[in-house]
């Protein structure tokens, strides 16, 4: 039987390759995680040393305050700080993904990419709205916890469409979020661990596993 494809081993390899490339978003770069972690650490550093003046009392008072406005004072600075970190992290993820896709000669904007974004966005936007509700109802002590939990849920969702490390990063964030709900006074610390250190850790793991060896070639 003569045909274009005579070697069944090559056929099976081609099938596996295209199944993997088409069902998972493999352009996510570990560098995106590393930079998101750095932005979060800078944001947390700024919050602690400048907004709260490294004063535990001031942080505690803020968490207990009953008339917080997100349009003035500490509330405004913290919101701006958090939004800047979020925007920088998202832009970083988009840039590094485009770069990784280009290096691999793969398209970045595919059906899988859209699916990934939708599945990340649903829990993330829900969390964002819920945080606004918490802020308006003066439950600031729960904001760090809710951020970590909803972000963790969206990563667990994303894990179905990309590297399995994202699934475990999601579980880690959920665990930290629950801890932050129990130990509310440690909210900023746990937030810094979750969004800063864990991104650095998992980003480095992904970078060393999937990207470093390709550079050596």
């Amino acid at each position: 039987m003569e045909s274009e494809s005579t070697n069944p081993n090559n056929d099976l390899r081609a099938i596996r390759d295209i199944m993997e490339r088409s069902s998972r978003f493999l352009s996510l770069s570990g560098l995106a995680g590393i930079f998101a972690g750095l932005y979060a650490l800078i944001g947390a550093f700024f919050a602690w040393f400048f907004i709260f003046d490294s004063d535990k009392e001031r942080f505690g008072d803020f968490l207990r305050s009953t008339d917080v406005s997100i349009t003035s004072g500490i509330g405004l600075y913290l919101s701006l700080d958090a939004i800047l970190v979020l925007v920088a992290a998202i832009l970083g993820a988009a840039c590094f993904s485009r770069r990784k896709a280009r290096l691999a000669g793969q398209p970045v904007w595919t059906t899988t990419t859209r699916r990934l974004i939708i599945h990340v966005a649903i829990p993330l936007l829900t969390g964002g709205i819920f945080i606004l509700i918490l802020a308006l109802r003066n439950h600031l002590e729960l904001v760090a916890s809710v951020m970590l939990i909803f972000y963790g849920l969206s990563l667990v969702n994303a894990g179905k469409f990309t590297f399995s490390e994202i699934h475990y990063l999601g579980l880690t964030e959920i665990a930290l979020g629950i801890l932050a709900g129990v130990f509310v006074s440690q909210g900023l610390l746990l937030w810094t661990i979750g969004f800063g250190l864990m991104h650095l850790l998992y980003g480095s793991i992904m970078y060393y596993r999937y990207e470093r060896q390709k550079k050596v070639e």
């Binding site: 045909s3 274009e4 494809s5 056929d11 081609a14 099938i15 295209i18 199944m19 490339r21 088409s22 069902s23 793969q106 398209p107 595919t110 059906t111 899988t112």
Partner: peptide, 27 residues
């Protein structure tokens, strides 16, 4: 037998639906 048709089908086995441009990029 055609590697291209094999590729199209492999991609459609693991995705509910795919649009033309996405398939074009993969293959």
């Amino acid at each position: 037998e055609s590697r291209i048709r094999l590729g199209i089908m492999s991609a459609l086995m693991v995705n509910d639906t795919l649009d033309f441009n996405t398939l074009k990029g993969y293959l």
